[in-house]
Design a protein around this nucleic acid. Sequence first.
DNA 1: TGTTCTACGTATATCGTTCTACAAAATTGA
DNA 2: TCAATTTTGTAGAACGATATACGTAGAACA
Lengths: 350, 350
Amino acid sequence: MSEKEPTAPRSGERITIREVAQDAGVSVAAVSKVLRDAYGVSDALRAKVRASMAKLNYRPRASARGMRGRTYTIGLIFPDLRNPFFADIYAGVNSALERTQYQAMQGVNTTSGALNITSGALIEAMIDRQMDGLVVIGPNMETQALADLGARLPLVVLGQHNHAGDAFDTVNNDDQLGARLVVRHLVANGYSNIAMLSLSPQNSSIIQQREIGYRLEMMEQGCGDAINILRETQVLRDVQVSVRRLLSGADRPEAIFCWTDLMAFEAISVATEMGLSIPEDIAIVGYDNTMFCDLAQNSLTSVDQSGELLGLQAARLLVERIDGRTTAEHFMVPPRIVARASAGTRTEQE
Amino acid sequence: MSEKEPTAPRSGERITIREVAQDAGVSVAAVSKVLRDAYGVSDALRAKVRASMAKLNYRPRASARGMRGRTYTIGLIFPDLRNPFFADIYAGVNSALERTQYQAMQGVNTTSGALNITSGALIEAMIDRQMDGLVVIGPNMETQALADLGARLPLVVLGQHNHAGDAFDTVNNDDQLGARLVVRHLVANGYSNIAMLSLSPQNSSIIQQREIGYRLEMMEQGCGDAINILRETQVLRDVQVSVRRLLSGADRPEAIFCWTDLMAFEAISVATEMGLSIPEDIAIVGYDNTMFCDLAQNSLTSVDQSGELLGLQAARLLVERIDGRTTAEHFMVPPRIVARASAGTRTEQE
DNA sequence: TGTTCTACGTATATCGTTCTACAAAATTGA
DNA sequence: TCAATTTTGTAGAACGATATACGTAGAACA
């Protein structure tokens, strides 16, 4: 009944490494080694320890591990949760981590406004919580800020084309090519006056890349005169206003290439409300190829950037970095256009 | 240059509580007290310590805190990330936590299939990581499993009407009333043959509640003969098949009350593909009132359950529990129907 | 045989906080 | 004025892992 004995295996609380060691008849250090797959353990010892761990249903505590080693937790930082595209990325990350000890925890970096804060509150919170590494998705941070962050812990940036030496890895779809594919597809279907509804503020390299792709392809297709980029925030009302203005102008474009599917859905909505038919009066193209594109009421032609693959690669690269890689790697997946009715073959003009 | 001195404030690494104490000229324990807003600190000391913390840009490490006390981290467990409704809940949680020391980390519990696992891998992972408490959203877990979980750590369940003593708090919208509102609204607009597209497996109390509400209100409105509940999984293809079968049957209903907006969008899609017009041939109603309902191509009548408020209350209750409350509280928000074109007044029948 | 390696295990300091005791100082009460 | 109480601050042992340094046994080689 004495509770003061230092080696008493207090049964009420959670199992610790000490109790596993005792049960297996080995040292605490040996159990730790097995836990970490560290060098210097015989098969016999490993089996013994594994058996005890299973028997006692032992689970190591991340806090304690984090004190000296890793927490086996990686942070995922999303810019937003409303866009179902991010669910694909998440799925990819998880499937990459499935067979590892790592676990992903996510959050949304709610940097209100377009502040150039070094890093959001969530990033700091994740560092406080000893994340072994971070995957930051579509950040609106300066490259330098990302480089500083990469100096502090393993970092993979998803949706950012700029490199900064070996500070971090990047994972992207080829945004320039994606934009080119859209223009090519539209031109092939008979459209030439194609406007681009891009994102504001235009501080991200993916935005730049996509705009460059649009510009170059428009020129190569002989539509240079029709180049027209307008930029808008993701706020629904703003998008509506912009699209309405665009569609009611004197030289209404024949097609709009939208920054995301979400914006494209808004565009479809506004066009529908204005009594325009799609694609006869106006063609719409989105980006991300989210699940909603398939719905008959949208039938949105979109660019698939394989969110799941992006997430998978990001997680893979991050684990490599945590395991010691110090040189940067950059992964790029080719986009693919998925044609639907919203940008179908252009019919006779009235 | 000697690096062995135990009290040397090693400058290269992260600031610790020790260095803050040294800078402020107080004990480590004093700094800890200030950090935790604990009892027994004078205003003068608090000010001194706060100043040093700010000056040194000190941030406590969650791992170390977790070793003895709290991590000031709470876990959010979503069933899915594709439904934008969950983004509202997340926003609510965050706004409740904004002025506290707590930080939310989220994950998706990917229990593949309808297994009755005690708790998913993510829940265990969160416990391993010493979360101070958990908000579990729309769980497909037995009430008993939730009670067991609640015995292990502070727990709030969002989207579950069953109570289990004081084991956990619940936060819900009144699903029974929500279903009643839908039926009432449809009947008032001239519909009487109203089918319900519910969720499968039907193991959750919110499903039961909503089905009960539908049944009771149908009977009270004199439409008891038309009661027709079919259940389907959330998988897109399954929903499509079900809706198609429903709409091509001999006694096609006049309206479908769908489990979520997402299912309703699918229903709209299928109906559109079949050449039916909405709401003339078939009225559709959803649940959640997500942002996509507003789009002209959907114009979906839906039930608003104030996701943000639900999240806010869940976080508030959880923090109370962490702070020591041991009796259960149950919060219920009244739903509100938002009428749009998809269930507009029924016109002449052919 | 003795020497040198290697492979395997162990003892124990350590990480950065919290928290329980306890001591000192300030305040109160009579 | 002194005891009793309250307030304020400190010392130091936890918490549960990891990792360094070291000991030991057997194998390999001479």
